[in-house]
Design a protein around this nucleic acid. Structure first.
Lengths: 184, 184
DNA sequence: AGTTGCATGTAACTTGTTACATGATTCA
DNA sequence: TGAATCATGTAACAAGTTACATGCAACT
């Protein structure tokens, strides 16, 4: 890994939008960031404790209507600075491991039919994802004017749409090429 | 992680192309698989020992011209079966973590200029990668007829080309949208 | 009364990287 | 002779997932 841990910045970032608990953060990541990010409870809760120890977040007062055992946090000024410093740093080289390409690289050990099956399954999954993210993108496009943040949400969905479409296009090209090879 | 370990299959796959040492495997991954895969020595050597213990690979006779301290391995028939069983299994859901989208999602904490800078840096890196993989793709396209395997190598390069191009297109759309927003 | 969801947290495990140790060979 | 590359391996660490433990609240 050696890539610096991002969980802390996800928490800081989400806390700039409002006070949240660990559970809230997990739900938001699942619901709104899932097409480009994931976090597990096993990462979130220890990271919260670390952030509190560093003074980057602190307990927030709860309104009386929320349950006793829920711990709400808010971001502090040093926390904001820490987040901004991270956001300004260049994006790290993401390590890429595409299993479909690995399997294709060793295609010599499979029959054409088996390879075609793998690509079709992969394509079907990308189509599902595209459908989801394209619906999300259309929704966000209509909300573009309601806040500056909505532009950013829209752009993340647009990226997903482009990338999934690129995979689907590649699947079609690959299937067509394999079909030509098979016939000759 | 929880995703099953792929290192073993990379080793088995490469050994179907010829007898290799751990060092050879590392070099091939770096030179030929680097646009979609990576492995470190810390994974390769223990995996080799495990594969040998399972009888999936075994020491190969060396030609007298290669050095004493180099350990060449060859794949066994059970090893071939193990590889094929893996290749036939559906491709696992890859976990996606795009840091550029994370940073963009929290764009509210940065100025337009800072966001634009991040996207331009990201775009420049994708353009570099595209250049590399597109050159590789053109080369492989001309070699398409020399073996069945070359079709697979070509398709992996083509996929990289499509995906990097999709990122670049998205960067341009994003920059144009951010420019419009800035002006109003 | 039982199931589902809310809520916090820990422990064991897996995967992966980095740095280090060691030494041979090749080439300028 | 010294640097770069070849070559194998280990140990410490970092990151991330999964399963588990615990208990409250809401609803059916």
């Amino acid at each position: 890994m050696a890539r610096i841990r991002k969980t802390k910045y996800v928490i800081l970032g989400l806390l700039t939008h409002g006070n949240l608990s660990g559970y809230d953060i997990k739900k938001i990541v699942e619901n709104q960031l899932s097409h480009f990010w994931s976090e597990s409870f096993g990462q979130i809760y220890p990271a919260i404790q670390e952030l509190e120890g560093q003074g980057f977040i602190e307990p927030a007062e709860k309104k009386p209507d929320i349950r006793e055992d829920k711990k709400l946090y808010k971001i502090t000024n040093p926390g904001r600075e820490e987040l901004v410093a991270y956001l300004k740093r260049p994006v790290e080289e993401e390590k890429i491991r595409y299993e479909i390409l690995l399997k294709l690289f060793f295609g010599g050990s499979l029959s054409d039919q088996e390879i075609i099956k793998q690509i079709m399954e992969f394509k079907a999954r990308q189509e599902e994802r595209l459908k989801e993210v394209a619906a999300y993108e259309r929704e966000l496009k209509s909300l573009l004017n309601i806040s500056r943040d909505h532009v950013f949400y829209y752009l993340t969905a647009l990226c997903g749409k482009n990338v999934y479409q690129a995979y689907i296009d590649w699947c079609n090209e690959a299937l067509s090429i394999l079909n030509d090879v098979e016939k000759r």
